[in-house]
Design a binder for these strands. Structure first.
Length: 639
DNA sequence: TCAATCCGTATC
DNA sequence: ATACGGATTGAC
């Protein structure tokens, strides 16, 4: 039995007796209720055994909840591996992996399963990628290839994913596709319906009600469907005979689980591909440093388009530094649009919709060089510098290791003056509208996302990730969020900037059809260059090289420990950590009553770091330490 | 000498 | 967490 108890020191199986009446129901994987330390708790049957190693008396389980074996041996192995990787408990992972039961749904008669054989699909769009046809063939033949795919700009990627899913089904196996949000689930769902026909796939996303969610999850578990597309928590979906797992746009923050133990979809799927002998596809318009690391270690192959295909599909991209000549037009000046951006938008509006990407509100101010605008970094650990207290007087300090940076000088230009970068100033749709009189303006943001726009000339003002997908491609796009993105106090600022720009640029028509993109940022900096040349792989390789130099993930394994200072110190004291461990900090975080400590080890010691922290958390929870401490491995946010 | 309380340990 | 037991302390 695995009992649903959040305590780290109780993260192990417990044996119970099965009463005779429950013999048929309490099958391995089924849900039960048991008395544990005097109270009733939920649990899962891991296995039925003839005897027990336990020296003391055994209790009978109180109730068998249902005979549905929701926790398969494969899922148990995966959840255990994820818990170990992230220094968490099996119970925490199972809570993410298995949806709440819905009795009425469970009792419904099983739907007819459509298992007509699927024909091996032609390579289609995959022949635009070096190694693409081979990848597809390997999947169709029952192999388990692993690849990192940089997709061509344009609307083709959902169809490519559907083709890969069809190849998996043709091999008699199942495909699991994980995308960042519900909008992408719908897009890929449409492509799957086109490729496989109706009723052959299932869409799992968080916004389904409990009944529908459990209904679809059960259909997957019972093997009624072989193609699954879903968001984050679907990465644990109990797919039978897994042949291929896909993580689309692995740089998107939505792939990082915000609940303990904070697993990342890409890591879960990589573990799963390994454990269940399945193929793996990590794809996107760009490539993350993690993706580059998978290729560098030869664990995965690259699936990259030819330069000719890129030239044919990519829009023309220009950079316009903010300080360049502003448009002559008075209204355009009011909107602070550089001349080249304004004319690109004006020309684009003659033939179709124009996208304007603007930054979201609410970035934290950090420091940058007053002379050349390079972001200010700590000389010791290369963390971002910030002002620890409000107002002048407090010297800048590293946000990671806490080292004061009174002696800071810019490594780019030598200046010793730093300035706070106040970002997030959002050009409003109204301001932009005045620059283009007579043109309708639509907005799409986090709170109200516009799904699509037609081919009519319209200005679409959108924040990153909320760009409507136009039926005929945008005629042009202006990317106005350059500084906001690039000065974020984040290790991944440049990578994230390129990812967001590429996502917008990918919605623009090819250069040959007049498609144009203007990015308002310095044309000399790396992510801008990578966008102009449409070279996500070169960028990712550089990014990985830089992280290797700085010793940041994915080149190393990092753990963040946060909580009250005494509790953090307590956990650290209880930890048996590898000798290679390096401490950064602690530094105060939040309102000042909490702090965060970073621990850094070489990748080969990652498992030992996680195990040491898990054991220390177990010691603490056994001593009933009340003060909570959060342990996060390779945290997404370090700012 | 007995009971209320504290602390540590186990939880099948 | 919660429950139990053994040690400890304090009052009659």
């Amino acid at each position: 039995m695995a009992v649903d108890i959040p305590l780290a020191h109780l993260d192990r199986p417990f044996d119970y007796l099965v009463p005779e009446g429950a013999d048929e129901l309490a099958v391995p994987g089924s849900r039960v209720r048991v008395r544990f330390a005097g109270r009733l708790v939920d649990g899962f049957v891991l296995a039925r055994l003839d005897g027990s190693e336990h020296a003391g008396d055994l209790s009978f389980l109180v109730r068998s909840v249902s005979a549905e074996p929701v926790l398969s041996p494969e899922l148990e192995t995966l959840a255990r591996a994820v818990a170990d990787r992230y220094a968490g408990t099996l119970a925490d992972v199972l809570r993410l992996a298995i949806p709440p039961r819905h009795a009425a749904v469970e009792a419904e008669p099983a739907g007819r399963s459509a298992h007509e054989p699927v024909e091996r699909p032609p390579a289609g769009g995959w022949s635009d990628y070096a190694g693409g046809a081979q990848f597809l063939a390997a999947i169709a033949e029952g192999g388990r290839p692993r690849a990192v795919w940089t997709a061509l700009p344009g609307p083709g990627w959902p169809a490519e994913l559907a083709t890969a899913a069809a190849a998996t089904l043709a091999s008699g196996r199942s495909a699991l596709l994980i995308v960042p949000d519900a909008r992408d689930v719908t897009r890929v769902g449409q492509a799957l319906r086109q490729r496989l026909g109706p009723g052959r796939h299932v869409e799992l996303s968080a916004d389904l009600g409990p009944a529908e969610r459990y209904r679809r999850w059960l259909a997957v578990r019972r093997g009624a469907v072989r193609a699954v597309v879903g968001t984050r928590s679907a990465s644990f979906a109990p797919v039978t005979r897994l042949g291929l797992v896909v993580c689309w746009d692995d740089g998107d923050d939505l792939h990082a689980e915000p609940r303990a133990p904070y697993p990342h979809v890409r890591e879960v799927l990589a573990l799963r591909a390994h454990l269940e002998s399945a193929g793996l596809l990590v794809g996107g318009f760009v490539c993350t440093a993690e993706g580059a690391a998978l290729c560098r270690s030869r664990w995965a192959n690259r699936l990259a388009p030819s330069r000719a295909a890129v030239r044919e599909r990519a829009p023309r991209v220009n950079a316009s530094g903010e300080d360049h000549e502003l448009a002559r037009d008075a209204a355009a000046q009011a909107a602070r649009l550089p001349s080249v951006a304004w004319s690109a938008a004006r020309d684009g509006l003659r033939t179709g919709p124009v996208l304007i990407q603007v930054p979201r509100r609410g970035y934290i101010p950090t420091l940058a060089c007053a002379a050349c605008r390079a972001s200010a970094r700590c000389h010791r650990c290369a963390g971002p510098l910030g002002l620890p207290g409000p107002g002048p007087g407090s010297p800048p300090a590293c946000r990671w290791c806490g080292r004061p940076a009174a002696d800071w000088h810019c490594p780019e230009c030598g200046s010793t003056r730093a300035r706070a970068v106040v970002v997030g100033a959002r050009r409003t749709a109204e301001e932009l509208g005045r620059a283009f009189p007579g043109v309708p303006v639509r907005t799409s943001g986090r709170d109200e996302v516009l799904a699509t726009v037609s081919t009519d000339p319209v200005l679409v003002v959108a924040t990153p990730g909320a760009e409507p997908v136009p039926s005929g491609g945008y005629a042009a796009a202006l990317l106005l969020d350059g500084w906001a993105l690039l000065t974020r106090p984040d290790l991944r600022a440049a990578e994230e900037a390129l990812r967001r720009w590429a996502a917008a640029a990918a919605l623009v028509r090819p250069a040959g059809e007049g498609g144009r993109v203007v990015v308002v940022a310095d044309g000399g900096i790396r992510p801008v260059q990578a966008l102009i040349r449409w070279d996500p792989i070169g960028f990712a390789d550089d990014e990985l090289e830089e992280r290797t130099q700085l010793r940041f993930p994915p080149a190393v394994r990092l753990a963040a420990i946060s909580g009250a200072p005494a509790a953090v110190a307590d956990l650290l004291a209880a930890s048996d950590l590898p000798d290679s461990v390096e401490r950064l900090g602690p530094v105060p975080v939040g309102n000042g009553s909490a702090e965060r400590l970073l621990l850094r080890v070489p990748r080969r010691d990652g498992a030992r770091l996680a195990a040491g922290l898990k054991a220390a958390a177990a010691v603490r929870s056994a001593r009933k330490a009340i003060e909570p401490v959060r342990v996060q491995l390779d945290p997404r946010e370090l700012g």
